[in-house]
Amino acid sequence: MLRCVAGTIVALAATTTPALAAQPSPDLQQSIAADQPLATGRATLATGHVDIGPRYVDDEWTLLVHDGTQARPVWRDPDETVFRVSDAALQSVPDDPAYAFLDIEAGRRVHVVPQVQDQGVIWLGWNSQDPRVLQTIDRGVTLSLLGVHGPGTLTTFLQSGNFAAPQVLWRSAEPAAQPIWVEVNTHTHANWVFSAPGVYLVAVQVSADLISGEQVSSTRTLRFAVGDAASAEEAFAATAEVPGAAGQGAPDDGPTEAGDSSDGPGTTLLAALVGVAVLLAVALVVVLVRSAGARRRAERERSAASPDGRP
C-alpha cells in the first residue's frame, strides 16, 4: 500500500492566521520503475519534484537523489547534485508560538522548501519506493539527520492539513543524530526551513534491516545553495567536517553495513576488557608488595624480641 504524506505549506507569514488546508498533490502517487537510469554529470535542481531515497546500484545499497524534474525521471549522485533554493522561497516567520521550535524571531524572512509543491521552488521529499528496496527491506528504513554545516540552521517539519501542530522531524541545532522511520513504499514531503542564505552541507544516513537478516546503511551529503546570491559552484566544491559524513561513498563504493566501524560495539567491549585486566594486574601487584612488606616487618619484630637476636 502506498503511504502518502501531504499537508499544507507552513503559513510563514507575519500573521496568526492558521495555514489553509491543501489537497495532496497528484505527484505523491508516484511509482518508480526498476529501469530508471543513474545519470552522470553535475546538475543544479532549482524547481520541480525531487526526492532522496535508498536504491541498489550494482547490488549495492546507497542513498541517491531521485530527480523527477524532467519528463523521464533519473537517479543522481548527491555529490553531483545541488539543490538551489531561490529567493522565490522566501517567507516570513509568523508571530505564532506554534513555530517557536524554529528559534527564529517573528517577521524574519527565511527560505522555505515547502511541503506542498510551489511551481517556482524546488520540491524536496524522500521515498522508499525503489523496486528492489520494496522487495528486500523488512517493514521500512530509518532516515537520519547526522549533521549540518552552513551559515544558519536547518529545520525540517511536517504540518497536516487539519490545523494540527507542526511535527518537528529534524533540527540542526540539536547535537545528536535524529532518526525518523519511513515505512516501505512511502513517499513524503516536508517543510525545510533555512534561517540564512548560503551554502549548506547536510549529512543524511539511510539504514535498514533486510528480510535476509542483513543490515545495510549509507551516509551521503546533500548540497544546498540557498538564496539567489549563493553559488552552485561553491556548493559543489564545499567540504566540511559534517558529523557522520566521513566514510560516505559514491554508489560504486558499496554499502556500509552496521558494525563495520572500527569504533563499533566490538571494539568498545575489547577496550573495556583490556582496561579491567590492567586494573586487576595493578591491584595484584599492590597486594603482593604490601604482603612482602608486612612479612619483613614481622621478621624484624621477632628478631628484636629474641635474646640471641635470631628469629
Rank of each mutant, 00 (worst) to 15 (best):
T47N: 10
G293D: 10
D118N: 09
M1H: 09
G140F: 11
R108E: 12
N127P: 03
D67M: 03
A240W: 02
I52A: 02
D260Q: 12
D103E: 14
A203R: 08
Q29A: 08
G120K: 10
T47R: 15
S218G: 07
G150E: 07
R290D: 00
L2Q: 13
I180G: 01
E233S: 13
Q129R: 14
Q70A: 15
P311F: 14
V82I: 08
V5S: 05
G254E: 07
L2P: 15
T47H: 07
P94M: 11
G161R: 13
R296Y: 07
G244D: 09
L273E: 13
V57H: 12
R84H: 15
N191Q: 03
N127F: 04
W61H: 12
T69M: 02
E257R: 14
A203K: 07
S231C: 08
A294F: 01
R42V: 10
L63M: 14
I52N: 05
T267R: 10
Q178M: 04
V289C: 06
G244H: 07
D77K: 00
L63C: 11
E234H: 09
L279A: 15
A71M: 06
L124W: 04
V141E: 13
L2A: 14
I180M: 10
S207N: 12
L143C: 11
T62P: 12
D209P: 00
D260I: 04
E183N: 14
T62V: 15
L145G: 09
D118L: 06
F83H: 03
D67W: 05
D87H: 01
Q29S: 03
Q205P: 00
P197E: 10
T153E: 15
L134G: 01
R290A: 10
V93E: 14
S160R: 11
R72Y: 05
F101P: 03
G68N: 11
L158D: 06
G259Y: 07
G152F: 13
T47A: 11
Q36I: 11
T267Q: 10
G48H: 06
A98G: 03
L273Y: 04
A240K: 05
T153K: 13
V50P: 08
S144E: 13
G198C: 04
T155F: 01
I32G: 01
S128F: 04
V276P: 00
L280V: 13
D228V: 00
R84N: 04
W126R: 11
R220S: 10
R300N: 07
P307I: 01
N185H: 09
L210W: 08
M1F: 05
V74S: 13
